[in-house]
């Protein structure tokens, strides 16, 4: 059988077998990446909106910088976070290296620039459309920020999903700051890297397929949530009518 065929068989066996080791790894992957994306959104959405609505000297430079950070190689982020969290680094006393928390920190650094860029673009475009109306209704730029973020929720969701994609797919950063420790910091991507190292390519690709399915699940859940929201509205409308 070809490697690809074997991989699908391996993926199928992994999923159907509900392998406890796999469950643990999948659980940790989701936990780390979803938490990181949630925190990155908490930081990135208001930051992007602020960048879109404020004007200060050097704003252009800040935007170019934040866009550049989107291209940061995960390994570099991993290294930077490692140097910060290492015992020899400034935050060594916190004992965070080789923990899921360290992985979350690295992924927050990776994902935040993406969410900042999306929310800046979305809010900037919305302000062109809404600005005059909102000012007329009595909103200032600051009080308009949450409104615009809410108005832009659908395109912003895309940005957040892009961030989740980057977080769940990267291996370089979590490998360095997490250490790929079994039962502690082993996630899907580092497990895949390990299986590649062991030359078990079908199993590695099988895990890759599981990761893909996972990502599909998150995206589908988001789409369903959006649909449910609309459905809910439709029902509410009918109830009124």
């Amino acid at each position: 059988m070809s490697t690809i065929g074997e991989s699908f068989a391996a993926a199928l066996a992994l999923i159907l077998g509900m392998d406890p080791a796999l469950r643990e790894i999948v659980g940790l992957s989701l936990q780390v990446s979803l938490t990181a994306v949630f925190l990155a959104a908490l930081i990135g959405l208001p930051l992007g909106a602020l960048l879109a609505l404020s004007s200060f000297p050097g704003r252009g430079a800040v935007i170019v910088l934040s866009n550049t950070l989107m291209g940061l190689p995960p390994v570099v982020v991993g290294l930077l976070v490692y140097l910060m969290l290492s015992r020899a680094g400034p935050f060594g006393v916190l004992s965070l290296l080789y923990t899921p928390t360290a992985m979350i920190i690295a992924q927050v650094v990776l994902v935040t620039p993406i969410i900042v860029a999306y929310s800046r673009q979305v809010v900037e475009d919305l302000w062109t459309e809404y600005g005059e109306q909102l000012r007329s209704l009595g909103a200032g730029r600051l009080s308009a920020t949450p409104t615009l973020l809410w108005e832009g929720r659908f395109p912003l969701t895309t940005g957040i999903l892009a961030g989740f994609g980057r977080a769940s797919a990267e291996v370089g950063a979590v490998m360095i700051v997490g250490g790929n420790i079994e039962h502690v910091t082993r996630v899907m991507t580092t497990a895949i890297a390990l299986e590649v190292s062991r030359g078990d390519l079908p199993l590695a690709l099988g895990l890759g397929i599981v990761l893909l399915i996972l990502s599909l699940g998150v995206n589908a859940a988001t789409a369903l949530l959006a649909m449910a929201t609309r459905q809910e509205r439709r029902l509410m409308r009918r109830r009124v009518a």
């Binding site: 459309e129 809404y130 005059e132 109306q133 909102l134 007329s136 209704l137 009595g138 409104t147 809410w150 108005e151 929720r153």
Partner: peptide, 14 residues
């Protein structure tokens, strides 16, 4: 708030 305006193409919030 004591004077308001309606635009040619009013922007409705989603």
């Amino acid at each position: 708030k004591l004077h308001a305006m309606v635009f040619q193409r009013p922007v409705m919030l989603r």
